[in-house]
Every structure is written in C-alpha cells, then in structure tokens.
Write a protein that binds this DNA or RNA. Sequence first.
RNA 1: GGCGCCAUAGCCAAGUGGUAAGGCACGGCUCUGCAAAAGCCUGAUCAUCAGUUCAAAUCUGAUUGGCGCCU
Length: 301
Amino acid sequence: MKAKVVVIVGPTASGKTAVSIELAKRINGEIISADSMQIYKYMNIGTAKPTKEEMSGIKHYLLDVVLPNEIFNVAKYKDLAEKAIEEILEKGKTPIIVGGTGLYINTLVNGIEFENIEEDVEYRNYLIEKAQKEGAESLHEELKKIDPVSAENIDKNNIRRVARALEIYKVTGRTKTELDKASQKEVKYDYRMFGLNWEREKLYSRIDLRVDKMLEEGLIDEVKDITEKFEISRTALQGLGYKEVIDYLNGNLTYDEMVEKLKLETRHYAKRQLTWFRRDSRITWLEPQNAVEEIIKSIKE
RNA sequence: GGCGCCAUAGCCAAGUGGUAAGGCACGGCUCUGCAAAAGCCUGAUCAUCAGUUCAAAUCUGAUUGGCGCCU
C-alpha cells in the first residue's frame, strides 16, 4: 500500500502556513514546502516565509536550501522533495506538502521523473535573440518541423517555451514530446490534496494587507541587503517584490507606485494559482477556518 | 449672471462625415527543467434629446454634467 501524503495548496495569502502547522501538530506530521521562492535563503519577508516562532517546533523541509545567487528548477525540487518525503516516512510521521507553486506540486502528484538534461544557456539565448530579430513566428516554425506536437501546444509568442523545446532537442536529440512521454511514471504515494480559498474580494484585501505588513517588517531593507551581498540569480529575481523594490531603489518607481504594483502583481499571481489548482479535480476545497478538522476527518477514512 | 472649453467601456485614450485603434484593470485560460515566470482569450455604439445628410462619435441646436475665466 502506498503511504499517505497530505498536500495543501491555495493561492498566496490564503492561510496555508497556519493551517499546515496546526495540522502537523495534530497528526504528527512534518512539512515540506512547495514554494519556488521560499526555497531561497535570506528571502524571508518578501516570500512570507514562516518564522521560527510560527513553526513552533514543527520541522520544515525545503526552506532556505539555495542561495539567492543560485539557479533553481523543478527537477531539483522534485528530487529534494521525494527525499524529504522518504525521510519523514522513515520517522513514522506524515509528510505534509504545502505551497503555491503548481508546477512543483504537479511533478510529485503526477509522478513525473526527470532525466538528467544538461542546460545549454548559450543556445537558448541565441534562439531568443533570433526570435527577437526574425520574429517569434520563425522560431515557432522551426519547432513545428522537429516537434509538431509541442508546436501545437505552445503559443508562438511564448518564446521562452518554444526556445526550451528546441533546446531540449539540441541537447538530447529527442523531442520534448518524446521526453514528456518517457517522464510519465507511476505516482509513488497516496496523495491527499486539499485547497484553501476565500471569496475573491476577501482574498484580495488579505493580499493588500500582507503587502503593507511586509513593508512594515522591512521588505526594503531585506532586498537592499540581499542585493548587496549577492548577484541575484534570474530565478530568484522572479520573486514578487524583489524586482519591484529594486526598481524603487533605483528610482525607476516612486514608493507609492512600487506598493501599488506589488499589490497588483500579487493579485494577478493569486489568480493564476487559482486557475492552476481549479482544474485538478483531486483537490478538495475547504474553508480555511475549519480546514484542519476537515483534513483530519478526511484522511482518516 | 456672462464668456469659453470639455463629455467615447471600470480607468487612461485614439478617432473631426462612411459605419468605434490601443493600453490598463476586471474576468477566463494554458502549463513537465526560469513557474511569485512566460504566454493566450475576453468588453462599447461614442452624456441626453431633436435636426442636417444616402451616411454622424464626428456637422447644427437644445438639455444635463464637469472645468476655466470674467462681472
């Protein structure tokens, strides 16, 4: 029989952290973060990373495992996450995966195994430049020739993904379609998925409040500090808040503009997360207020 | 009270006689190695009324509302 693994998803500011810690206490669990930004050390305030006090003794995995100048990706995540699951299970505890990064959760829950593929950043950049010069269409045409299925699925304007598909072919000699098929493996655990959500309006006002709180807690100093110590990697730089604050510090945005932009982009992010999670019918949606009880009831069955 | 200007989607905004550009927001969506990323889809009959004209958001008049100046 497969081991049970609890998964808690939800948009940013939905209250996942509090629910997961409470649940961990109740069911003798430990928490594995599924968050592409909390994985970075020193990025604390901006990622709303739980503090030591909040964790209240519950062990958290996959927080602070890479430095802001390092590049991270799903394949690495998948690897680390499964190791963490094993470690928790060996202790006889229940793993609780918590986070808002749909892509990362997706690979666990759908049993995707990545092969080792070298990156070819040079070729990738060459392709992107080419698309900028000759137009997105020409790059897409190229992909159509070698991998028509991927070309069909990727919008021609999505240069990043088109280039990735071409890069895969150059590096491995196989198409993305072939690789994707080969990566589809059996799901290893009995994942029980739960989603937290609020009425849209409420969620948005929670987001606004959270952004204000981050600023009060010193988001700007945090960003200043990190940029002084590290050359922030392109993946870490994608974190909400960091680029906006950097723009503010450079004088490209006024303080108010920065705050507004940060709130707006966080709302957009929450919306995208909901789009991602809504289509997964395995997720049971819960009211955050009584989520802990509901989850306990549900996983006992 | 007088004179002048303005009135296009939630917001910004093009269009000055031939049948409503664009941007943003909102909403929806895609997703296997940058995913807090990248990309896609989606809305009006032009303040109101009357008139001129084959044809008006575009011209005329009145009304309403806003802005500015003057007494």
